[in-house]
Nucleic acid binder design. Structure first.
Lengths: 349, 349
DNA sequence: ACCATTTTTTGGAGCGCTCCAAGAATTTTA
DNA sequence: TAAAATTCTTGGAGCGCTCCAAAAAATGGT
């Protein structure tokens, strides 16, 4: 690849003049400019290499998004929540004219990815791994972490997951439900894990504040109705697990209401219900979480704990772009009641 | 920001040793290593700056995605098609361990964006603008352009849009439809444009091969049934235009079948039908385009011209990553018949 | 024709790093 | 204990660019 200097030599001018031809052509005499351009063309020089400019100027003009947990960026793009989040981030990037880098880092390469990422700031998906935070801090880049409060010195944005979970349960107990099942998130690869009541290995502390908080909200909501979460089957599946619906219906047939951790999971259940001819909400009620656009268009339209995912992504991007004093933002949540919930079935099935 | 040299001075060692401490610690004697690490900590040095490494090594380890037309990246992320495309690209990026940079470029900044993008290759959304291709070629980066054939020397991937369009029309004429409306794409900002039959300003050549080809397919399909596209109302709306459904129902009430350019548009129509209590497919049939995941979950599930969007994105990424001899790929398309199409209503409304 | 201006062009400095051949220090071997 | 082998450390070179102060060239005025 030819460089500015090469072109300069070929055209009989200095490096600096060639740079000017490309960056401030008005500074150089037309005929000379032409000569330089001709030389550039002849050499196949395609303009100053951004690498050089970068080293000099120091700004990447990009922010990085690191998926939560050990997820790959394609997994983020697959989930309705992830897509809306990225949409929110991209909105802010559009406004700021910034590139959005979806940074890939599987397991052990995540740290190197952060170390090497060509970005001016980071948005970290929720994560159980404190190491990621340290990696970003090392680089002294502005960043924000999602769905985990990491203390007063660190930008964070989370929703009030507990209240949302409580609201979901209240809505259902208010409708008369007494028999629940919970579809929770498995954060390690593998098949669904079923925790039946009375079993030793009840989860409840997965290590992901996101999940724990919601589970705790469910527990609290149930307690308010004199129900114990210990009597509720909890099924953990990795996001997008297609068999999630099957497992829930097979292992918790007596449940009249199913609580989930995401719209995506709820969609899986709804899909399975259609497949099995199970009436929602006649036979069983289903509540989603997140309030993504998809939740409004399911069959039937879904009752869900809605948050402003797009707004969250956008705010996150703004926070790293603006780089002001660290804040801890807790976003509100709102139960949106649609048609996937109703009073419990009386008997039968 | 301290540099390797600063740390070296502080620790009484050379630049090179500090570099080794961070990149090949096994090469440096433990006690010295410790001393250097202490100095780094004291100075607040967070590891070698990627900018320097970049200049030396020359690889960005990222590929860029440039939205089609003059769209912003948030607009891509908003459309079902765009999201699946990006998902496909991210799949390949995951496999290759590459960062995916969503490059922002509004109108006149697009060229600068391409010039400055910190990427090793580009995926160009379909575009009417030859200038973008030239910009990328200038940088001698591998790239692929979507949905436009730019000649044998340029990587391109497109679907067989014409066949898809023909198949959609055949399906409908086979069902007995004679009265159509077409919902096409407006590629400039602004409200819907309605082209009624007999009007002077019929579109048909928008300058976007993508649209033109599909329109031409509709024309051909209609001709096969002795119908003329000149008798069909054509409505052009920008993607995501919420009033699209309204405009179609208001301006083409006699249509018994509506052809669209994307699932997104078809969804808009379906939503409006629900709002107005119009029966699909009893009163009017609707056909989408793209076969995104969303199309399977609409009410009613949508008949659509399906393509493998994810596969397309993935292939595109592979092509730039592999950087082999240029190919022009044409992907097949398949009409997926679901429940949004049926025989036309007999009379009434 | 000469000096004062104005317009163009120049090339050094510096951005921060990694590689690598060579030199220095240490350890091993005889 | 000296020579040989091994392990560590060093600093020059070079990656490609932009900025900028200064030099050179062109222009204008008298």
């Amino acid at each position: 690849m030819p460089t500015l200097a090469d072109v300069g030599k070929a055209a009989g001018v200095s490096r600096g003049t060639v740079s000017n031809v490309f960056n401030r052509p008005e500074l150089v005499r037309p005929e000379l400019r032409e000569r330089v351009e001709a030389a550039a063309r002849a050499l196949g020089f395609g303009g100053p290499d951004p690498k050089g400019r970068l080293l000099r100027d120091g700004k990447f003009n990009a922010i990085g998004f690191m998926p939560p947990g050990a997820y790959a960026i394609s997994e983020v793009m697959r989930s309705p929540y992830g897509r809306e989040l990225v949409l929110g981030v991209s909105l802010a990037c559009d406004e700021a004219g910034t590139t959005l880098s979806l940074v890939n880092g599987t397991d052990n390469t995540r740290f190197a990815s952060i170390r090497d990422a060509l970005v001016d700031g980071f948005i970290l998906g929720h994560s159980a791994d404190i190491g990621l935070i340290i990696s970003v801090q090392r680089r002294r880049l502005p960043f924000v972490i999602l769905e985990s409060d990491a203390g007063p010195d660190i930008n964070s944005i989370k929703i009030d997951g507990r209240s949302g979970a409580v609201a979901a349960v209240r809505h259902l107990t208010g409708l008369g439900h007494r028999h629940f099942a919970i579809l929770s998130v498995r954060r390690t690869p593998g098949p669904p894990i079923v925790h039946m009541p009375g079993q030793a290995t009840r989860p409840l502390l997965a290590g992901f504040p996101l999940d724990d908080e919601r589970l705790d909200g469910f527990k609290q909501g149930l307690a308010e109705a004199n129900l114990s979460i210990d009597d509720v089957p909890i099924i953990e599946t990795i996001p997008g697990e297609p068999s999630a619906g099957s497992v829930v219906f097979d292992r918790a047939p007596e449940a009249t209401a199913i609580l989930t951790m995401s719209d995506w999971q709820a969609i899986t259940i709804l899909d399975e219900a259609v497949r099995r001819g199970i009436d929602v909400p006649g036979h069983v009620s289903v509540v989603g979480f997140d309030g993504t656009a998809e939740s409004a268009r399911t069959t039937p339209p879904m009752t869900t704990v809605a948050q402003d995912v797009i707004g969250k992504g956008r705010l996150a991007a703004r926070m790293v772009l603006d780089n002001e004093a660290p804040r801890q933002v807790v976003l509100p949540v709102e139960l949106v009641v649609r048609a996937s919930t109703a009073a419990p079935r009386t008997k039968t099935r």
